[in-house]
Amino acid sequence: MQSEQYWRVFKKSLKASFLTALEYRADFYSSIIIQIIYFIIQFLFFSIIFSHITILKGWGLGDLLFLIFLNDVGLTLFEVTGIRGMYYLVITGQLNTKLVKPKDTFFLIALEELSINSIFFAICDIILLFFVATYFSLSMSFLPFIVGLILYVISLPLLVLPIMFIETLSFFWGETEGLLGIYHSMIFSIKEYPLSIFNKFFIILFSILSPGILLHLFLPAAIILGKIDPVWGLWGILASIAFDIIGIYLFYKFFKYGLKKYEGYG
């Protein structure tokens, strides 16, 4: 029964968010067009690079584009939710309007205002994935594909949990824009390149700073494209599940503690 209630709230949120996006049609359509142009430019950029080289540490043009679009999907879907703007709700006091509603606060933060643009961007990414796979005739076997896909889905929380922790820090510190900016810059710079181009020091450093970089931004694409043995994928899945359970539990506790410390600014 509760799940039905939450499902109803989600449907209404989706409708309201969709109408909001359509209210600014010019913005909505232009951002989709620009996103498509951006994909074209990325395609051209790497084509120019690969006119000078044939392979980049074992990755061809098609492989690289597949990696980029695959990495985009997960992050874009995360951008659909309102979690990214949580610190702003806290520092402006707008979180108050969510706290006086009889539904789970985190649910309301995440799903009361959705980014419809990001849904369309994610759809574009998925279409481009299929296009790149077909156009470049990327060879994918069934087992590595399944292992890579499962790892990709299970490891997404690992990548976004640090963002959620930092957003929750705003309950204690107020402005956490700085930390968010630093983590964001790291993820968005690295996601366009296979980890194998870095030297060992940076691979280990990035993997420690965020295990999601290794387990989500590199391993799934590498396994799907046959660059790495799928057995590593199975280990990755186990590690992701373990990290996810611990991470989500700790986040839940931290969030509840943060709510207790909230001072209702503004």
Binding site: E177, G181, S189, Y193
Partner: peptide, 18 residues
């Protein structure tokens, strides 16, 4: 300023290796 610098550093590292 620190955010700005971090964008530069983290943007530069992959570009360097690439």
């Amino acid at each position: 300023l620190i955010i700005s610098l971090s964008w530069v550093i983290f943007g530069f590292i992959p570009q360097f290796f690439f």
